[in-house]
Simulated scan of single mutants.
Amino acid sequence: MIKKLTLPPLPSFPDIASAFIRIPSSKHDIAGPWLVKNQTAFIFSRSAWGLQALVITAQFKLGEKPIVWLPDYFCDDTLHPLRLIGARVQFYPITLNLAPDWDQCYALAQKQTPDLFVIVHYFGQPSEGVQAFDFCQKTGALLIEDAAHALSPSPGIGAYGDATFYSPHKHLPIPQGSLVVLKDRSRFLPSELETACRNMAEQAPSSANWLTKRTAQKMLPPKILRAITKRNQKSFLEDGASKTLPTEPLCSRFGKTMLEQASKNLKKCSETRRKNWRYVTEEAKNIQGWDPLTSLPDTWTPYRAVMRCVNQERAELIYRHLLASDCPVESWPDLPAQVTNTPTNHAVANELRRTTILLPVHQTLDTAKVSEAFRRFKTHPAY
């Protein structure tokens, strides 16, 4: 396998060629690695569309638009499918441990209870599922686990929600592919979700752009690739123009085949990501002014190595100089306007947006080049 220093994992050319020829298996067989016992799965192109399907299903049950509670540390672009259907979204605050601020959640519930409560397993680390389940029992809300940053079910992930959604396309070298998994005896009935899916657009995204980008990343000389990357790189606090997610909720045949092929190596993928997380964070410890935000991933698979800086000034400096050192790096997320416009109500989310830096740990990462990038960083005049 060819390894390079990129943010996303890179596919192999044999896997790409095979996906053009093979016919994907059944939905249940493709989703097998994400299912436990009598669970049911639905496949989408992106998890944002899976969440829309769940909200539509809840609307059928309630007879009105449901009130959806999301954490305030949430990517704004992914809310587009919910806005399309006029969902009533409310943002609850989180703590620096990346868990819901339960005191604030219960206080907010005194004014208006949620119909759907979404808990996020940030960066692959299990959140407080037991507390979320208890909160939903007391408020009557349906519990949804956002496991988009989780590679697959693991202790504390996928065990409590009526529904859990995963985004394999974030972890595996595939162009698209996400899953909504309904637990056995979920309050979301499979037949109701099937009906919701039939009310969504019957379109799947093309994989052409993904194929072009990944081929370029694999084939272009490193010098040219670095120049292109730097030219397209945003500044630390720049969110860029808001992107409207194309209304293409289905997963294409090519996407399903790539997903099925890649899912056969989840165990090795998880082991490599944990190993790379340890390697990257160990290298990062040599830089002053930041520390890992998440715990050691012994039982879960990291999506990124997330470093929290002591302040915004330090974060911007490290981010800028890592880019100059040819290390792929990103900030996250583009917060919703409701969160950025009321910073006193969402202090932690805004603080994390200003101080966190994400580094790659994926399974095709060249760790030797990571070391080279950090060595260049430490020789930077401003370090």
Rank of each mutant, 00 (worst) to 15 (best):
261 Q>A: 06
62 L>G: 08
150 A>F: 00
194 E>F: 11
198 R>Y: 10
221 P>R: 03
295 S>Y: 08
60 F>V: 03
249 P>K: 01
49 W>Y: 14
89 V>H: 05
102 W>Y: 15
211 L>S: 11
149 H>C: 14
135 F>M: 11
253 R>Q: 13
207 S>E: 09
244 T>V: 15
71 P>K: 02
356 T>W: 01
42 F>V: 00
286 N>D: 09
5 L>C: 11
69 W>P: 15
17 A>C: 06
193 L>W: 02
135 F>H: 12
30 I>G: 11
199 N>C: 14
364 T>E: 10
335 L>C: 06
42 F>L: 00
164 T>S: 07
234 K>N: 10
59 Q>H: 00
289 G>C: 02
114 P>Y: 01
20 F>L: 08
165 F>G: 06
312 Q>A: 11
17 A>P: 03
280 V>P: 12
324 A>K: 12
301 T>P: 01
383 Y>W: 15
3 K>L: 06
324 A>C: 04
3 K>C: 04
60 F>Q: 14
338 Q>C: 00
185 R>G: 11
219 M>H: 06
206 S>M: 04
179 L>G: 04
47 S>Q: 08
183 K>E: 13
33 P>I: 08
243 K>P: 14
288 Q>D: 09
93 P>Y: 03
70 L>D: 04
108 L>T: 05
364 T>S: 13
248 E>T: 15
162 D>G: 02
268 K>D: 14
220 L>D: 09
105 C>L: 13
278 R>A: 15
41 A>T: 01
109 A>C: 05
99 A>T: 13
69 W>F: 05
229 T>K: 07
217 Q>P: 06
368 A>Y: 03
253 R>A: 12
95 T>M: 06
162 D>W: 00
20 F>I: 15
12 S>N: 10
345 N>K: 12
36 V>F: 09
197 C>Y: 01
71 P>E: 07
68 V>Y: 02
354 R>A: 12
58 A>W: 01
228 I>Q: 14
108 L>S: 11
45 S>K: 04
327 C>L: 12
152 S>P: 13
38 N>Y: 07
241 A>C: 07
317 L>R: 06
30 I>Y: 02
158 G>M: 08
357 I>Y: 11
285 K>N: 13
112 Q>D: 13
300 W>D: 10
340 T>G: 09
97 N>T: 11
23 I>Q: 14
325 S>L: 03
39 Q>I: 00
376 R>W: 02
375 R>T: 12
114 P>A: 03
153 P>I: 03
100 P>A: 05
237 L>T: 10
106 Y>C: 10
378 K>P: 13
140 G>D: 04
209 N>F: 15
232 N>V: 06
213 K>A: 08
376 R>H: 12
20 F>N: 08
287 I>W: 01
91 F>R: 04
126 P>S: 07
4 K>F: 12
136 C>Y: 03
310 V>A: 09
254 F>Y: 09
253 R>T: 14
289 G>I: 00
332 W>K: 09
21 I>K: 05
27 K>E: 00
20 F>S: 11
233 Q>W: 04
95 T>P: 10
63 G>D: 11
63 G>P: 01
277 W>Q: 05
247 T>V: 01
204 A>K: 02
307 M>W: 07
274 R>I: 07
121 H>P: 07
109 A>F: 07
152 S>G: 14
365 L>R: 01
79 L>Y: 08
159 A>S: 15
29 D>H: 10
286 N>K: 14
219 M>F: 00
170 K>I: 13
144 I>N: 06
312 Q>M: 07
330 E>A: 09
